[in-house]
Simulated scan of single mutants.
Amino acid sequence: MIRTFLHFLSLLCLLLAIMAGTLDSIESVSSSSVVMTSLGNHWQNLDVVSLTLAEEAVRNYIHPDVWRWAVAPLLAQPAFAVFLVLSLLFWMMGYRRPRFAGRFSA
């Protein structure tokens, strides 16, 4: 059941990566230059309040430097790349190697 949930998260992240990549490619074609929107810009365009709340929560409950050293560089990366990496990680966590001798071996 956990494996199915991890594969579902992988699919969801893959769909988000495709959506972010499609938006970036449409914007790149319309502006005639390469555009790669960062994850932070996407999050800020969707909901500024939740971004501010997340920053305050990390600074208050974890450590003030965690936002600056770990989260901010992640938010500066292109959104499609972050979601592709997350998709790969979730798929790898849910992967199960096939049995060596087969399913119905003695």
Score class of each variant (00 low, 15 high):
1 M>R: 06
4 T>M: 08
5 F>P: 01
6 L>P: 00
8 F>L: 08
11 L>T: 13
12 L>P: 04
14 L>M: 13
15 L>N: 04
17 A>P: 02
18 I>A: 12
20 A>P: 02
20 A>W: 01
21 G>C: 01
37 T>G: 03
37 T>P: 04
37 T>I: 13
38 S>Q: 05
40 G>T: 01
40 G>W: 03
40 G>S: 12
41 N>P: 02
43 W>C: 08
44 Q>A: 14
47 D>W: 09
48 V>K: 10
49 V>A: 15
49 V>G: 10
50 S>C: 07
57 A>C: 08
58 V>Q: 03
59 R>M: 12
61 Y>T: 11
62 I>M: 10
62 I>F: 12
64 P>V: 15
65 D>A: 12
65 D>K: 13
66 V>A: 12
66 V>H: 07
67 W>E: 03
68 R>N: 14
68 R>L: 11
68 R>S: 10
70 A>D: 07
70 A>Y: 12
70 A>L: 15
71 V>Y: 02
73 P>I: 02
74 L>K: 07
75 L>S: 01
76 A>I: 02
78 P>H: 11
78 P>D: 07
80 F>W: 12
80 F>P: 00
81 A>D: 05
83 F>A: 01
83 F>K: 01
83 F>N: 04
84 L>Y: 04
84 L>I: 10
85 V>G: 00
87 S>M: 00
89 L>A: 14
89 L>S: 09
91 W>N: 09
95 Y>P: 08
98 P>T: 03
98 P>R: 13
99 R>T: 07
101 A>L: 14
102 G>S: 04
102 G>I: 09
104 F>Q: 10
105 S>P: 04
106 A>P: 09
